[in-house]
Amino acid sequence: MSLQQIDLSKTLSDEQVYNCLMENYAGLGKDWISHQWNWINSVYWAFNDHYKYMIVISLVEKTMQFYNQMNIQYSYDEYYSKSYLQIEKFSITELCEKLKLPKETVRRKVLELEKDGVISRSKKKIIIDRKAFGFIKPQNQIKFTSKYIHLVSQELNKNKIYSKKLDPKQIENVIKKNFTLCWDWFYRMQIPLIIGYNYIFDDLTTFHIWGTLTMNQAFNFKKNFDSENIHTLQPSYMTFNEITLGKIGSSTGISAMSISDMTNIPRATVIRKCKYLIKHDLIKTNEKKQYVLTKLNHEKIVPYQKESFKQKAKFIRKVLNLLVFS
Rank of each mutant, 00 (worst) to 15 (best):
K176G: 04
D281M: 03
E112D: 13
I171L: 04
S326D: 14
N229V: 08
V17T: 02
D14N: 15
M257D: 10
N19I: 03
I259T: 02
E307Q: 13
I33P: 00
D7T: 00
Q141H: 15
N224E: 14
L204E: 01
D203Y: 05
I301A: 09
S75H: 04
E104V: 09
V302M: 13
D202W: 06
N68M: 10
A46F: 02
S260I: 03
M70I: 06
M215K: 13
S236D: 15
D129L: 14
K124A: 10
W45N: 12
R188I: 03
K273H: 10
K10D: 10
Y51V: 08
F325P: 04
V319E: 00
K137C: 09
L8W: 03
F225Y: 12
N229W: 07
F201E: 00
V152C: 05
N321I: 09
S120K: 12
S58Y: 07
T212Q: 04
I200F: 02
S255D: 09
N229C: 12
S34I: 12
K98V: 14
N198R: 06
E61K: 03
S251V: 11
K222N: 06
K123F: 11
Y199A: 07
F144G: 01
S75L: 06
W185Q: 03
A256S: 15
S163T: 13
Y25V: 10
S81A: 05
E228I: 13
I271C: 04
D49V: 02
Y291R: 10
I243A: 08
N38D: 10
Q65G: 11
L233G: 07
N286Q: 03
N198I: 01
T180G: 05
F186H: 13
I142P: 09
V292Y: 01
Y25P: 02
G196M: 08
G134Q: 09
L296Q: 10
E114A: 10
L156E: 01
A313H: 03
F90C: 02
N159W: 07
K62W: 02
Y80P: 08
L233M: 15
C96F: 05
Y25S: 05
T252H: 13
I271F: 07
L8H: 04
M64Q: 05
P138Y: 09
L181H: 08
V302R: 06
K222H: 09
Q4E: 14
I40L: 10
K247P: 05
I72T: 11
